[in-house]
Computed example of a mutant assay.
Amino acid sequence: MNRTKLNWLLAALAAITLTACSGNEEQATAKPDPVHFESGDECHVCGMVITNFPGPKGEAITEKEQHVRKFCSTKDMFAWMLQPENENRDHTLYVHDMAQTEWESPDDAALIDARDAFFVVGSDRTGAMGPTLASFATEDAAHGFMMEHGGEVLKYSEITMEHLNTGAAMDEMSGMHEMGAMEAETAEHSM
């Protein structure tokens, strides 16, 4: 009888030890490496071919399945990530460090953790979907870009849906202003 209790105790101790070890392994697991953008990759949000367009791109890798979602612009990545069903998930996110690569054709060797990046919102540079968020590894690089191209520097955690709509609304208003000026000029010449 004592031998049975000892076996039970050893089995329980082994189970606890294995559980503790497996928990440490999960905590020690490193985040996945970024995945290169291939010529036929399509944006998870809009379906456009990603490599056909300039500006920084983004990607999200799900924690458990390691499923990769690729985006033609940082704006599309944020539009997807800020959806209620994705906002609190622990995805690994990557964006291009635009201080390390060319705007027209970003190099995948310059992919950085999006949560550690600084973004310029509202600049005059456009990406796949028009206005985009220029991404940088350092705040200094983001400020340098902002000084040259306008906009506002924000951390990942500060970006909201309103920021994603800022550039589009400004472009639409700019176009409306130009149309109004042309109509006024045409009316003036008619008189």
Rank of each mutant, 00 (worst) to 15 (best):
R125P: 02
A169S: 07
E148V: 07
L82S: 13
H36K: 09
Y94M: 11
I61G: 11
T138Q: 13
G47F: 13
A20M: 11
E188A: 14
A181R: 15
N86P: 00
Y156S: 02
E85F: 02
P131N: 03
R89A: 03
N88I: 04
K75N: 12
M182P: 11
A117Y: 02
L6R: 15
M191F: 11
G40A: 01
N165L: 12
V95F: 04
E59C: 02
N7C: 06
G167H: 04
A110T: 08
R115T: 03
N52K: 13
Y94L: 09
V68C: 13
D116M: 15
L9M: 15
F136E: 12
V153S: 04
E102K: 11
M1I: 01
F119W: 13
D41Y: 08
K70V: 02
T19Q: 05
R89G: 01
K64F: 10
C43H: 12
W103V: 08
F118G: 00
N86D: 00
D124R: 07
A109L: 09
E148T: 08
R69K: 10
E65T: 09
E42K: 12
H149W: 12
H143W: 05
G58M: 11
M48K: 12
H143G: 00
A12M: 10
E148C: 01
G23L: 12
E25S: 06
G175N: 13
G55D: 01
E102L: 09
F119P: 08
L82G: 09
E104N: 14
L10S: 04
M1P: 14
A187V: 06
F37N: 12
G144V: 06
P56I: 00
R3L: 13
L93C: 10
H91Q: 04
F118W: 15
E178Q: 15
L9A: 14
S157E: 15
E65W: 06
S190A: 05
N7Y: 03
D116V: 10
E59G: 03
P54K: 03
R69D: 05
C46Y: 06
T17F: 15
A184I: 10
A15Q: 01
W103P: 04
A60T: 01
P54G: 01
A99V: 07
P54T: 01
E183I: 10
